[in-house]
Design a protein around this nucleic acid. Structure first.
Length: 498
RNA sequence: GCCCCCAUCGUCUAGUGGACCAGGACGCGGCCCUUUCAAGGCCUAAACCGGAGUUCGAAUCUCCGUGGGGGCACCA
């Protein structure tokens, strides 16, 4: 194992929506490192901006992680030695640390109004300069600032970025990243409402929670120097920084956006949200496998991995820093692979909710009987309902034209159907072994291709042109049902020509 | 506009100076199997962004372009 020291890592989403695949992949990598090293996986909710708070989002994120099987060791609901794990409940801690920086001269109170700041920004935009704070309140004498702050004058706390210097931070995937401090402005760490901004809150909490590795999205890369500066001002050690690449749209052109992905689910049965995955018939194993391989690889050929195998084989230095376009075809492929890899009883168990959801009275025992004939022909779990729902419906409703194979007309199809019925009726048992030979012989007698005869029966018995193999299907249907459905098809073929 | 990051088949990736006329996977095309649909097997097409260096030798190192992405809030 490359990392022998137990890692303490965190997944720190803001409660602004449901868990999406980008967040899930970040959570996964954090989880893998924690499990591999015998460390701890911490869930922390970053809700310092109440204006963006979405009710229920925290629960949705937790549900998504649980569904994926990424259970956290410390978090809002399970607690832990470094709580609370909801950032808004740590406001006092953040405020005290901001005060500490002010005392140390590393930060200062800023009384600039929104109006002044807006005007400043506009001016800078017109001059085509990078918008940044001009350091106006740096000039307020500390005693005066303290007095004004104490008197209740609205103010924020800004971090004092040393001018004329450069800041270098090491990212595990990208090496040293150096920026000119001039490109950083004196950023705000505490808002006028007394709540911390992300930069301060995250660094204080990471330190207090003993975080050893910060694995997060690359959208944080530009503010990495700020975080390092903050940590250094406190005199704290830096964690190992790992900035993951973003996910791109399937076309590879542009970032995967939630808004643009809204139609995905309805239009092509895919979704960027973990909460949709189960409904769409995906298995957690497949989603995990798919996600893991977008940005990480075990070696040059392994593509099927269980969560345990990922834990065993994960390595930070096999992470890929380049952005990855998501490929839903590949998710489908993995899903099929994992479905086929499931023990039959387990697949039956997992299929049950989909039949329930479709209002079909299936049970595990019945599903277990049909699993052998559908397991290798479904790509998603919900497809089992389309494929085998007819087993659980009282009757089927074939379309008349589907009962008539290419090259035949209604009367010859009918004749074939009735002949097949008579042969089947003569058999004591409708097992696969008993039915196939007579049906093949019949086809030959009627000068039909086997597929033509079988097609008529298939549509009559299942109501659909695509189904599990015919003789296995007949064997699983109750005998009376077979003849009822044939009779119904007969009636349909006898009916009006159009 | 400024700052930062990234760059191998259409896509996900392997590749850490010679073992690469670049390997695997998805997808595509073809063949086989076949009662539909799948699954499975076999095969084909398909890439080192460009240009300068460094080196006996570069997909691998450096620089410059170009392209893509991210970021520049009292958001996270």
């Amino acid at each position: 194992m490359p990392d022998v020291k137990p890692a303490r890592v965190r997944f720190a989403p803001s409660p602004t929506g449901s868990l999406h695949i980008g967040g899930a992949r970040t959570a996964l990598y954090n989880y893998l490192l924690a499990r591999q090293t015998g460390g701890r996986f911490i869930l922390r909710i970053e809700d310092t901006d109440q204006t963006r708070f979405v009710p229920g989002a925290t629960e949705q994120v937790m549900a998504g992680l649980r569904w994926l099987g990424l259970q956290w060791d410390e978090g809002p609901d399970v607690g832990g030695p470094h709580g609370p794990y909801i950032q808004s409940q740590r406001a006092d801690i953040h405020r005290a640390h901001a005060g500490q920086l002010v005392e140390a001269g590393a930060a200062y109170y800023c009384f600039c109004t929104k109006e002044r700041l807006d005007a400043l920004r506009r001016e800078q935009q017109i001059l085509k300069r990078q918008p940044r704070y001009d350091g106006h309140c740096r000039l307020v004498p500390p005693e005066e600032a303290k007095a004004r702050q104490a008197a209740g004058e609205p103010c924020v706390v800004r971090f004092k970025v040393t001018e004329g210097a450069k800041t270098t931070v090491r990212d595990l995937l990208r090496g040293d990243i150096t920026v000119d401090n001039a490109s950083l402005d004196d950023f705000i760490i505490l808002k006028s409402d007394g709540l911390s901004l992300y930069h301060l809150a995250a660094m204080v909490d990471d330190h207090l929670m003993g975080i050893t590795h910060v694995i997060r999205g690359s959208e944080w890369l530009p503010s990495l120097p700020k975080h390092a500066l903050l940590l250094r001002a406190f005199g704290w050690d830096e964690p190992a920084w790992v900035h993951l690449s973003v996910f791109l749209k399937p076309s590879g052109k542009g970032k995967l956006s939630k808004r643009e992905s809204a139609n995905l689910k309805a239009e092509e049965g895919h979704s960027v949200f973990v909460h949709d995955m189960q409904e769409l018939g995906y298995m957690r194993e497949a989603v995990l496998n798919w996600l893991a391989l977008m940005g990480w690889s075990l070696d040059d050929k392994t593509d099927v991995l269980s969560l345990d195998e990922m834990i065993a084989g994960f390595s930070l230095d096999r992470l890929n820093p380049a952005p990855a376009a998501v490929n839903f075809d590949k998710l489908d492929h993995f899903n099929g692979l994992h479905i086929r890899g499931l023990p039959q009883a387990e697949l039956a168990r997992r299929l049950l909710p989909y039949f329930d959801g479709a209002g079909l009275k299936a049970d595990e025992a019945a599903l277990l009987r049909i699993v052998p004939i559908i397991q290798e022909r479904i790509g998603t779990l919900d497809e089992a309902v389309d494929m085998a729902g007819f087993f659980f419906r009282p009757n089927v409703t074939p379309r008349r034209e589907q009962l008539i194979p290419k090259g035949l007309d209604a009367s010859s199809a009918l004749a074939a159907l009735l002949a097949a019925r008579d042969r089947l009726a003569a058999l004591p048992d409708l097992t696969h072994a008993a039915t196939e030979a007579p049906m093949r012989a019949l086809a030959e007698e009627l000068k039909l291709k086997p597929g033509q005869l079988f097609g008529i029966l298939r549509v009559a018995l299942t109501g659909q042109p695509v189904s599990p193999p015919l003789f296995e299907t007949i064997a699983l249907l109750d005998r009376p049902v077979v003849f009822e459905r044939i009779a119904a098809a007969e009636a349909l073929l006898l009916g009006s020509e159009k």
